[in-house]
């Protein structure tokens, strides 16, 4: 027992007190700021560098649903593109993930488009079933971390459950491999109504680098309403939790 007490003392306090304002490393790549004086030439240059076609060569916008956060565009144009460490980049509309060259504007959910039932039913308790469909295990590990002693999303009644029967929605990671199509559909069907769908990570949102792979089938995602998009490669636990807090109105 004394040994345990000693260990607990070394362990100290590890939990993140305020999940809204927690500072992360300066180099963490979250919401980008694209300068409004980016030239046409520079837009083309950035678009040509982007490995996933996330940058529009005429508008100069960056689609966070496709971005793999490699920072290659910002390395080439450090005065025009900068990835800030703002991790609040989850949205409920796909088009809002496209960041325009308009300077430093925070990214928030579109309140009017949140299905009202979500807040009535799930605000105090949201149970989620995770389905990895070709995920590379980094998003899955970050989702596990969201519930660990540091981030502890359980404090808001949000947790992952073992059975889809106990869940209020599914969280999909990965670009959806063909070999997972049936299992994903069965899992979703097993969740009772009302239910939500959350996509976590670039691969889930757009297919990422795998979008044109012949081993991928995106039809499930194309045919369902998505309630929350959580970008990242992988998505940071704080991005996931803050997105959920916004969705639930916490």
């Amino acid at each position: 027992m004394l040994k345990e007490i000693k260990i607990l003392k070394s362990h100290g306090v590890q939990y993140v007190k305020d999940l809204r304002t927690q500072k992360v490393a300066e180099r963490f790549r979250g919401r980008p700021i694209i300068s409004n004086d980016i030239t046409d030439e520079e837009k083309k240059q950035a678009a040509a560098l982007c490995p996933v076609g996330a940058i529009d060569p005429t508008k100069g916008s960056i689609d966070l649903g496709r971005c793999v956060f490699c920072n290659e565009c910002a390395f080439a144009l450090p005065d025009k593109i900068h990835f800030t460490n703002d991790y609040r980049i989850a949205t409920n509309r796909r088009e809002d993930l496209i960041i325009q060259p308009r300077g430093d504007l925070p990214l928030r959910l579109k309140e009017s488009e949140i299905v009202p039932q979500i807040r009535t039913f799930f605000k105090g308790s949201l149970k989620l079933r995770q389905v990895s469909a070709g995920g590379d295990n980094s998003c899955e590990m970050e989702l596990n971390a969201a519930g660990n002693v540091n981030f502890d999303m359980g404090r808001y009644g949000i947790e992952f459950v073992a059975s889809p029967r106990h869940a209020d929605g599914i969280v999909i990671t990965g670009p959806v491999s063909k070999n997972m199509v049936t299992a994903l559909r069965i899992t979703y069907d097993a969740v009772p109504d009302p239910k939500i769908i959350i996509l976590v990570g670039t691969d889930a949102i757009s297919g990422g680098l795998f979008a044109d792979s012949p081993a991928i089938d995106r039809s499930f995602i194309e045919n369902h309403r998505i309630d929350l998009y959580v970008p990242g490669n992988p998505a940071h636990p704080l991005t996931f939790i803050n997105g959920l807090m916004d969705l639930l109105g916490i």
Binding site: G134, N179, L209, S213, P214, A215, I216
Partner: peptide, 11 residues
């Protein structure tokens, strides 16, 4: 196994 196949060697 095989559920996670994304065609990486092909890509």
């Amino acid at each position: 196994l095989g559920y996670q196949h994304r065609g990486i060697e092909h890509l």
